[in-house]
Design a protein around this nucleic acid. Structure first.
Lengths: 144, 144
DNA sequence: TATTGTTATACTCTATAACTATA
DNA sequence: TATAGTTATAGAGTATAACAATA
């Protein structure tokens, strides 16, 4: 019966499981960050900029595992919204452009921290602490 | 130094790890399926259609965890390329539209199986079989 | 009323290519 | 030559809203 269609053999494919897990996390994040108007990547940039004032786009690209062009679009959007700004500080390498949070950006980051904690709690609730440690370690092996 | 920027505290966030792992898997998949011209989702549809002739779009949407509209775009693309076709079979529910692979679709699916196996081998190589079992189980808890 | 398929629309993410300026 | 930033462009994935046909 067509109504019984499942992933079948696809269920044994790890890549698919990672994709589905990512999708579920992504949906939960989007739903709960709608009121803040931030995506997962945008929050990450605010967080990194808050912790590392003066970082450059290349630093962001490396930390976020994204292309330079993709990072540009991300940064550009945050600049337009007045959450991130370029600093006019003196840099040793004049190619690099330093960024820092604006006051609005810092405020939004603070509000985001609570939402991130709630999101992580939702995700972690289904695991024991041992399982969490293991899952962290296993996932890290994929991208490192 | 800006060159030392890392994920820092972000590294403790499971959601981010899942995202990065997904990104790494996605990139590997894209690179190795470029010659076949198929995305992960497209391969999944071919696979499911091959195993379940006559399935409907709703079945695909449920199995792939995607919106109906998103599934439409996916199916539409495969139809345009002549890999998937609608069947004129008699259905009990006339709203449902049955799909099946074309000859081209079946051929491409066969070629894909080898590529999928190679992709999975690349991914699984970093884990023991016990770890693989564990990772499968842990990930499934996120989306089920 | 609910479900299936459909279209229109929009936004995010991702990446490639080509360019400028600097190292 | 190599790196940092930039722009233009394009494709994939995701989702919402609104509609028609059918159950």
């Amino acid at each position: 019966m067509a109504s019984e269609v499942t992933l079948g053999e696809l269920d044994s494919i790890l890549g698919l499981r990672i994709r589905r897990a990512h999708g579920a996390v992504q949906r939960h994040f989007t739903d709960h960050f709608a009121e803040l108007g931030l995506t997962q990547k945008q929050v990450s940039v605010l967080w990194l900029a808050g912790n590392h004032p003066g970082l450059a786009q290349t630093d962001l690209a490396r930390a976020l595992d994204t292309d330079r062009a993709t990072t540009m679009a991300l940064v550009h959007g945050l600049e337009k919204r007045g959450l991130l700004a370029r600093t006019a500080s003196s840099q040793p390498d004049r190619r690099r452009i330093a960024f820092q949070l604006t006051a609005d950006g810092a405020r939004l980051l603070e509000r985001s921290r609570a939402a991130i904690a709630a999101h992580e709690a939702w995700l972690a609730a289904r695991f024991t602490s041992d399982e969490l440690v293991q899952l962290h370690a296993l996932l890290a092996r994929i991208y490192r």
